[in-house]
Amino acid sequence: MPLGRVIDVPAPLTAGRVTLRVVRAGDAEALRALLRGNRDWLRRWEATHPSGRSIEPGSVPMRPTIRAYRRQLKAGSGVPFVILYDTEIVGQLSISELSGGALQSSQIGYWVSEHAAGRGIAPTAVALAIDYVFVTLGLHRVEICIRPENAASLRVVEKLRMRPEGRRAAYIHIDGAWRDHDCFVALREDGPMISRLPRG
């Protein structure tokens, strides 16, 4: 196992009107509808397969995907969340690439629906997730990799004052081609991320 242990399902993580909750089977239809409704919004940032055999988000039932997500907890390899604003599902956040041993590292990826963008939801969700990684999972490092063209996601890491570590060339196959990504990092000694959010 990447962490050498099963990850317990965390209780919901909340700050203000934003909550992270582990995805569950009952979220399937809401997520599928959200993905279908946001295809144009998300397409530029969606991972694709180099073979061209990618599946359009929202075009297949979500229950098998959710079961696979939840298996990550048992494997110690990831934590799959939905993002809620008040009680509405507005996106997803995944903690992945969990590594124990000498590395003690993880990565975070996320998306928020177009109708919910611009309300400070993504920075709050990311801050909650990073603090969970450090406090509950006890890891040392979190990475977020972002396409340099993705201005909205770059604002998230800027608000949290995550340190830039440079560009990874042709890092992930996105929207039909190999795309560069800029890497941003938080370390446990940086202190609580949630306290870095602008107030008010």
Score class of each variant (00 low, 15 high):
residue 99 S to T: 14
residue 88 E to W: 04
residue 130 I to Y: 07
residue 171 Y to I: 14
residue 122 A to L: 11
residue 35 L to E: 01
residue 114 E to N: 05
residue 33 A to H: 11
residue 56 E to T: 15
residue 32 R to Q: 09
residue 141 R to D: 04
residue 107 Q to R: 14
residue 105 S to K: 02
residue 35 L to F: 13
residue 130 I to G: 05
residue 112 V to T: 09
residue 101 G to N: 12
residue 64 P to S: 02
residue 94 S to K: 00
residue 136 T to H: 10
residue 26 G to D: 04
residue 23 V to A: 00
residue 113 S to T: 12
residue 33 A to E: 00
residue 46 E to Q: 14
residue 33 A to C: 01
residue 59 S to V: 12
residue 146 I to H: 11
residue 29 E to Q: 03
residue 107 Q to T: 05
residue 144 I to E: 00
residue 123 P to R: 04
residue 171 Y to F: 15
residue 8 D to N: 08
residue 165 E to I: 14
residue 106 S to W: 03
residue 60 V to K: 11
residue 33 A to L: 09
residue 6 V to M: 04
residue 183 C to P: 07
residue 192 P to E: 04
residue 173 H to I: 12
residue 110 Y to P: 13
residue 139 L to I: 15
residue 92 Q to K: 02
residue 34 L to F: 11
residue 173 H to G: 06
residue 132 Y to E: 11
residue 184 F to T: 13
residue 192 P to G: 06
residue 95 I to F: 06
residue 66 I to R: 02
residue 154 L to C: 09
residue 188 R to D: 03
residue 96 S to L: 00
residue 172 I to T: 10
residue 109 G to Y: 01
residue 168 R to Q: 13
residue 94 S to T: 01
residue 190 D to C: 11
residue 159 K to H: 12
residue 10 P to F: 12
residue 200 G to S: 07
residue 156 V to W: 02
residue 86 D to F: 01
residue 199 R to A: 10
residue 25 A to W: 10
residue 186 A to D: 14
residue 171 Y to T: 09
residue 80 P to N: 08
residue 42 L to I: 15
residue 183 C to T: 15
residue 172 I to Q: 01
residue 147 R to S: 06
residue 5 R to T: 05
residue 147 R to M: 13
residue 163 R to V: 03
residue 199 R to I: 11
residue 80 P to I: 00
residue 111 W to D: 07
residue 123 P to W: 12
residue 169 A to W: 13
residue 103 L to Q: 05
residue 33 A to T: 03
residue 120 G to C: 06
residue 110 Y to S: 07
residue 156 V to I: 15
residue 70 R to D: 00
residue 179 R to M: 14
residue 47 A to E: 11
residue 29 E to R: 04
residue 50 P to V: 12
residue 69 Y to I: 02
